[in-house]
Amino acid sequence: METAQFHDIDLAYNQLQHARRLGAQIAFDDFGSGVSSLTYASQLPIDIVKIDPEAIRHLVKRPQQRRFVSGIIDMAHAMQRIVLAEGVETPDQLDVLRHMGCDMGLS
């Protein structure tokens, strides 16, 4: 369902719940870009929030970007979601993400 747009939130919820019962984990991809929606992240049975690589790119040099990513991490953790940062390319980015409490990072 990576590129699906949800027109019927109840149908999407039921389908995702069914997938979870079958043992699948559900990830909310590219959070922080495009058509990401806090509504979907809060209402659907999602296990993982994946932060978009563009949100990570300037993490070290731009304080505003750190606050943005930190907010995503805090929000996701408040909803008991795992946070995965995509596009981690430097040790400094990884250190900042670890300090913020990010659960995982991928290059």
Rank of each mutant, 00 (worst) to 15 (best):
R81G: 08
V69H: 11
D52Y: 11
I51P: 00
Y40C: 09
T39W: 03
V96K: 04
Q65H: 14
E54Y: 05
S107E: 15
V35R: 06
S70N: 15
R98S: 12
I9K: 12
L11F: 07
Q5P: 04
S33A: 12
L11Y: 09
I46G: 09
V49W: 00
M104Y: 09
Q80Y: 06
D74T: 09
A24W: 07
I51F: 02
F68I: 13
F6E: 13
A76Y: 01
Q64N: 11
Q25F: 13
T3L: 15
G23V: 12
D95C: 10
P45V: 06
I26Y: 10
L84W: 03
V60L: 15
R81H: 10
A24M: 14
A85H: 08
I72N: 07
F28E: 01
V69F: 08
A24K: 08
A27G: 07
Q80P: 00
T90E: 01
L22P: 06
G105K: 03
T3A: 10
I48L: 02
R66W: 05
M79R: 09
D10A: 12
G101R: 00
F68S: 04
E54R: 10
H77P: 04
S33C: 09
G87F: 10
V49Y: 02
V83I: 02
A41C: 14
P63R: 05
Q43N: 08
D8T: 03
E89R: 10
P91L: 09
D92K: 14
M79C: 12
N14V: 05
V60T: 14
R81S: 06
L106P: 04
R21G: 07
A78T: 06
L16P: 07
G34L: 05
F68K: 07
P63L: 01
D52G: 07
Y13R: 04
F6R: 03
H58T: 13
R62C: 02
R67C: 10
Q5C: 15
P63T: 00
R20H: 13
I9G: 15
P63M: 03
D52R: 09
D103P: 06
M100Q: 03
R81I: 01
D30W: 01
S36A: 13
F28P: 01
A12I: 02
L97I: 08
D8Y: 09
R66C: 15
A4E: 15
T3H: 12
E89Y: 03
R62I: 01
G71F: 02
A4H: 13
R98T: 06
E54N: 12
P45N: 06
S107L: 12
A76V: 03
D8M: 06
D10C: 07
A41S: 05
A12F: 00
Q17K: 14
R98V: 05
T39H: 10
M75K: 00
R62V: 00
P91F: 08
R62S: 08
V49N: 02
Q93I: 04
F28C: 07
L38R: 10
H77Q: 05
L38E: 14
S37E: 11
P91V: 13
M104Q: 04
R67Y: 09
D52Q: 13
A78Q: 04
Q43Y: 04
I72K: 08
G23H: 13
I82F: 00
D8L: 10
P53Q: 14
R57L: 06
I82M: 04
V96R: 02
N14A: 11
H18Y: 14
H99A: 15
S36H: 08
G34H: 07
T90F: 00
S37R: 03
R57P: 02
A85Y: 00
P45I: 03
L44A: 04
H77E: 12
S37F: 09
Q25H: 13
P45Y: 11
